[in-house]
Design a protein around this nucleic acid. Sequence first.
DNA 1: GTGCTGACACAGG
DNA 2: ACCTGTGCCAGCA
Length: 115
Amino acid sequence: MGPMPRPTAHRLPDYADRVLSAAERVPPGRVATYGDLARLLGEGGPRQVGRVMALYGGAVPWWRVVRADGRLLPGREGDALAHYRAEGTPLRDPGTPGGTPRLDMRRARWDGVTR
DNA sequence: GTGCTGACACAGG
DNA sequence: ACCTGTGCCAGCA
């Protein structure tokens, strides 16, 4: 069958589509790590998920896809923090003046099943 | 092909 | 808390 390689594919690759769908399933007030989503999909790895989020993350709740260590997305800490406070996402050090807020991963991490 | 880069993860120091 | 090295793997020069 002719693969028909469309020169300018405006469509997201199927993989990216699945990553974004998975990101959409993360409930408000919770987060999933890049690795979590990769395992949920059963394909690719954290770096691949990260790549998709970097390219197309703006179309989904990107602040719910985070690093495993709970650090906020560099350059978007303010936006992310606003969302976390609005959704009641568990944070460590909710208000330490000099310390950068971090997610409380133990409580905020979504298990991938519970809604 | 080789080598570097990245919205990662994990173990050490 | 910060930095470094290693493993990982797709994308790109």
